[in-house]
Amino acid sequence: MGNERSQRQTAAIIAVVTLSNHKIVSAGEAFVLEAKNEEEQQKLTLEIAKTVKGDVTQLSNGIYLILRS
């Protein structure tokens, strides 16, 4: 495995942008936002990502995560 812990570029989940059909059980310290539709979801994701200078990834179920390393 090597010295992975010290080598990893860790990223924290800053925000989660969901739709009404998504169920969030617990979000930890992340800021959770529910958008009306996919268009708004993308728009909000981009706005938050720009604000916090974060990176974005989309999960297979459509949830957007905004991460910052």
Binding site: Q42, L46, A49, D55, V56, T57, Q58, Y64, L65
Partner: peptide, 9 residues
Amino acid sequence: TNLAGTENA
């Protein structure tokens, strides 16, 4: 990577 979540990226 899978960090190209936005269209811009």
